[in-house]
Design a protein around this nucleic acid. Structure first.
Length: 605
RNA sequence: GCUCAUAUGGCUCAGAGGUAGAGCACUUCCUUGGUAAGGAAGAGGUCGAGGGUUCAAUUCCCUCUAUGAGCUCCA
């Protein structure tokens, strides 16, 4: 089957053999039955149809909406009277295998939309589909006695559809509209051979193993608590150590780049949020409280505090750019259904900064930030990509400002040959932005850092600086975060590293294991020496066997284990077991100190 | 927010209409062990919260809370 043609590609168009049959396809590129993107598209689409056929045979009253191909597979939305659960997926899979074995030819028929509307007259979900497609010719595909409205492309025969798996059953609104009825959706995936299907399953397993919620519990990094509330992370000692290391490194990096630390209040009067536009444009995501008859809003962003810092003095053009940064704690009312571990929470801390500069300085400052981003992402081994988000529906300010700001961002990227995508309408309400999306070890993408150009808030707060001619001018504000938030970044880092955190931010960098009680004093001395060098260690002196204590340290993924016994006490040394390099050797204390220092200095921002 | 599912000691999970168990973790004792689980004894749960059905509910029903999956990727 491997060399059989299942479709053709004509430039931008992918068309199946059924469609090609009526034209001259000698110039078309052949799509063979393999795991190429084109082939998978066809295979998965056909598998979705075969799933629908199986469902129809098992549940004759089933009505089908749409069944598209998605990134890793496909889904089909449909309505049945019965409730379908995960345990029914096996039955459906079996029926699908059966249909594949029937080796049914898949036959295409073209007709006008008008005729099709009549043909599917008693199917209200198909009528919904008709509302969404243009007038003119439509096609239906038939395999055995199952017929479905579909534009294709499809494989020629069901015998190609043997390596598939149904992943899960879920609910989905008709057309993604939360006001419409909820349909049943089954997700699945398919490949051209068994091996690829197995590899895919393995990848899913690996992703489960790396889930930061699971590892966060195992390594005692963070927790959540019903009594405290949803989306409010609680940092345990290990997690707080990790986070604090990150904060310190980043603090220094900011200082070296000319940023000044500042700090604004957690709650500000609603009047201030009205001036900024947050009250009207972001209010539904904010929490409010009343103090002495005045309404206050808990900050969802840190801009206001930094604006107030700017306004504290008369600013000169000689001062610009002014860079203020803060690890700003923000609260946002996210919908309960979107909360997810550390990735989506209601309270989080941004590594936030605002740069006040002249319009002419936008480009150089954006570039400087991009360089900062690159330094940090490289330090963690992340690859990333950029996306420019333009004016959203809910926005403040003149179009002229938006155009200037968007141009500023594009110029900075274009001028340096940096590639980027465009997310139309994805900007913040006060300005367009560059989003930095990082790709983790499993090729999944996450939005973290962001750079935003803002002409609006300076205008609304009447910010100014005095220029060389002693005239008042309006500065521009750049909002930026590099990690995005400590919560999300650490979550991603956990999944990226599978919990094997790099030495320089590992919560516990070394565990000291004294062989017996007699070596406790020496272990304690070692602990103090290392702590003084900025190395976090723990002494594992519980009444457990040596093996057990080593095992525990390994389970906690501690990078180094230092075993000390008679020999080490006598020679003033340690026996080092390096988890990452999987080697063991002896070192004097001085050598150990040097080694640790080297390890720490491997990374700097 | 909506749909569906789940909620049992710190963790991972069994269990049944008559108020509960395992392993790990924890405590104590023995053991002082040279690189991934030494041994023994013990303590710990109003079975997520509130309400209802029942002679009886942790188990059935309802509400709430929390968690999980999905709700954007167009026949």
């Amino acid at each position: 089957m491997q060399n059989e043609v299942i479709a053709y590609r004509d430039g931008e168009t992918l068309l199946d053999t059924q469609t090609a049959a009526s034209q001259d396809f000698s110039d078309f590129q052949k799509v063979l039955f393999d795991n190429s993107d084109d082939a998978l598209e066809v295979i998965r689409h056909s598998t979705a149809h075969m799933m629908a056929q199986a469902i129809k045979e098992l549940y004759p009253d089933a009505k089908f909406f749409v069944g598209p191909v998605i990134e890793d597979g496909f889904y089909y939305d449909f309505r049945v009277d019965e409730k379908i659960s995960d345990s029914d997926l096996k039955t459906i899979e079996k029926k699908m295998q059966e249909i594949a074995k029937r080796k049914l030819p898949i036959v295409k028929t073209c007709t006008t939309k008008k005729e099709a509307v009549v043909h599917f007259g008693d199917d209200d979900l198909k009528q919904e589909v008709f509302l969404r497609i243009p007038d003119g010719e439509v096609s239906t595909y038939k395999q055995g006695d199952f017929e479905d409205l579909c534009r294709g492309p499809h494989v020629p025969n069901t015998r190609y559809l043997r390596f598939f798996k149904l992943i899960r059953v879920a609910g989905a609104y008709l057309g993604g509209d939360e006001k419409r009825e909820m349909l049943t959706r089954i997700y699945g995936t398919a490949f051209a051979d068994k091996k690829s299907l197995m590899e895919y399953s393995k990848m899913i397993e690996e992703a489960k193993k790396r889930d930061h919620r699971k590892i966060g519990k195992e390594l005692k990094l963070f927790t959540f608590d019903d009594e405290v509330g949803a989306g409010l992370p609680i940092w345990l000692p290990n997690g707080a150590r990790l986070r604090s290391r990150l904060e310190h490194l980043l603090f220094k990096a900011h200082r070296l780049r000319g940023y000044e630390p500042v700090r604004g209040p957690e709650i500000l009067k609603s009047d201030a949020w009205k001036v900024s536009g947050h009250y009207d444009n972001y209010g539904e995501n904010m929490y409010f409280t009343v103090i002495d008859d005045a309404e206050y809003g808990i900050k969802p962003m840190n801009c206001l505090g930094h604006i107030k810092v700017y306004q504290d003095e008369v600013r000169s053009y000689r001062d610009l750019p002014l860079k203020f940064f803060e690890y700003g704690v923000v609260h946002r009312h996210e919908m309960s259904g979107v909360l997810h571990g550390l990735f989506r929470v209601r309270e989080f801390t941004q590594d936030d900064a605002h740069i006040f500069c002249t319009p002419e300085q936008i480009k150089e400052n954006v570039l400087e930030i991009l360089d900062f981003v690159d330094t940090i992402m490289s330090a963690f081994g992340f690859e990333y990509e950029m996306e420019i988000s333009t004016k959203p529906e809910k926005a403040i300010g003149d179009d002229a400002y938006w155009e200037a700001a968007t141009k500023g961002l594009k110029d900075a990227l274009d001028g340096n040959g940096i590639k980027y995508g465009i997310d139309e309408g994805g900007g913040a309400f006060y300005g367009p932005k560059i989003d930095i999306k990082i790709t983790d070890a499993l090729k999944r993408k996450w939005q973290c850092g962001t750079i935003q150009v803002d002409f609006n808030l300076p205008e609304r707060f009447d910010l100014s600086y005095v220029d060389a001619n002693n005239e008042h001018k309006r500065p521009v504000m750049l909002h930026r975060a590099i990690l995005g938030s400590f919560e999300r970044f650490i979550g991603i880092l956990i999944e990226h590293t599978a919990g094997e955190l790099p030495f320089f931010i590992a919560p516990t960098q070394a565990v000291i294991v004294p062989i017996s009680d007699a070596h406790h004093v020496y272990a304690k001395k070692l602990h103090e020496i290392l702590l003084d060098e900025g190395i976090d260690t723990e002494i594992s002196a519980k009444n457990e066997s040596l093996n057990k204590r080593i095992r525990n340290a390994e389970k906690m993924k501690v990078p180094m284990i230092l075993v000390v016994g008679d020999e080490e006490v006598e020679k003033n040394s340690v026996a080092l077991r390096d988890r990452r390099e999987r080697i063991q050797y002896n070192l004097s204390i001085d050598e150990l100190k040097t080694k640790m220092k080297e390890k720490l200095s491997e990374v700097h921002f």
